[in-house]
């Protein structure tokens, strides 16, 4: 998933209890990956890729809020992760 001014791309659809390798990076400035409402917060830095393994254990709609100040559109920067029941 990529952060750029001011959106997260793409919208992800995952399945519950499956493990995924999530690649996170930024195309321009620092952004903050803040997954709500589970509250996982990670720093996204341009030029670096963060890879982590996640296993969603709840189904539903989750939102990625940008929580590193990234300019005037910072508060518009939302992304979605949908987790379906398998």
């Amino acid at each position: 998933m990529l952060g750029r001014l001011w959106q997260w791309y793409p919208i992800l659809e995952l399945e519950k209890n499956q493990s995924y390798r999530l690649h996170l990076s930024s195309m321009d400035w620092n952004h903050g990956f803040s997954l709500q409402p589970v509250n996982i917060n990670l720093q996204i830095i341009p030029g670096y890729e963060m890879v982590l393994t996640v296993t969603p254990d709840q189904a539903g709609e989750f939102t990625v809020v940008c929580n590193e100040y990234c300019g005037i559109g910072h508060h518009l920067m939302l992304g979605k992760i949908y987790v379906g029941e398998n």
Binding site: S34, Q36, V65, N67, E68, Y69, L78
Partner: peptide, 24 residues
């Protein structure tokens, strides 16, 4: 903060964003 409200953030309503999200 424990409920996920972020710092340096102008609008916890996200007015005008393409997607939407509501804090509790």
């Amino acid at each position: 903060g424990t409920l996920g409200v972020s710092r340096r953030h102008w609008d916890m309503d996200f007015t005008g964003a393409l997607l939407s999200f509501e804090y509790s």
